Computed example of a mutant assay.
Amino acid sequence: MKNYVAFTGLIGAVGCFLLGPSICHATENGGTVWPLGVQTVLPAILPALGETSLYSYTAYYKADSFKDNRGDSAIPGFKLENFVQAVRIVHTWDVTFDNGVTLSSGVIGSANKIKVDAFGSSDTDSGFQELYLTPLYVGYSPSENLHLQTGFGAFVPLGNYDGSKLANSPTGNASYTQEFDLTWFPHPNWEVSVAPTFTINAKNDNTDYRSGNVFNIDYLLGYRLQSNPKVQLGLVGYYTKQVTDDHFDHGDVEDGNRLRKFAIGPQVFYAFDQTSGVALKWMKETSVRNGPKGDSLWLEFAFPL
Rank of each mutant, 00 (worst) to 15 (best):
H187N: 12
D125R: 05
D181Y: 07
K230V: 09
W298Q: 08
G15D: 05
V38M: 09
D218Q: 15
N206W: 00
D125C: 07
G294V: 03
A263T: 04
P304A: 14
Y238A: 13
L235F: 15
P135T: 07
S193E: 03
L225P: 14
A202H: 08
Q85D: 01
E28Y: 01
T286V: 13
L36H: 00
S175D: 02
D246M: 14
G71W: 13
M1I: 15
V95L: 04
F97P: 08
L49W: 06
G159K: 03
Y4E: 01
G291N: 01
V41T: 12
N206H: 12
L299P: 11
T134F: 06
D295V: 08
A118D: 02
N173C: 10
L42M: 06
G37A: 07
G294H: 04
F303T: 13
Y238H: 15
Y270E: 08
I75C: 05
L131A: 08
L148V: 09
F152A: 08
I11D: 01
P196H: 10
D295F: 02
S53K: 00
K115Y: 02
Y55T: 08
F7L: 02
F215E: 04
W298M: 10
A279Q: 12
N173H: 10
R70W: 14
L280Q: 05
F7G: 00
P135V: 10
G265H: 04
A174H: 11
Q149L: 13
Q267D: 08
Q242H: 15
G151L: 04
L36P: 00
K165L: 10
L225C: 11
I200W: 13
N168W: 02
T183Y: 02
L54I: 09
K241S: 07
Y219Q: 05
F185M: 12
G109W: 01
T58A: 08
A111F: 04
K281M: 12
T177Q: 13
P188N: 04
N145E: 12
E81G: 13
Y61W: 03
V214N: 01
F66M: 13
E300L: 06
P135D: 12
Q85R: 11
Y239G: 05
A59L: 08
S105C: 04
K67R: 15
S53C: 06
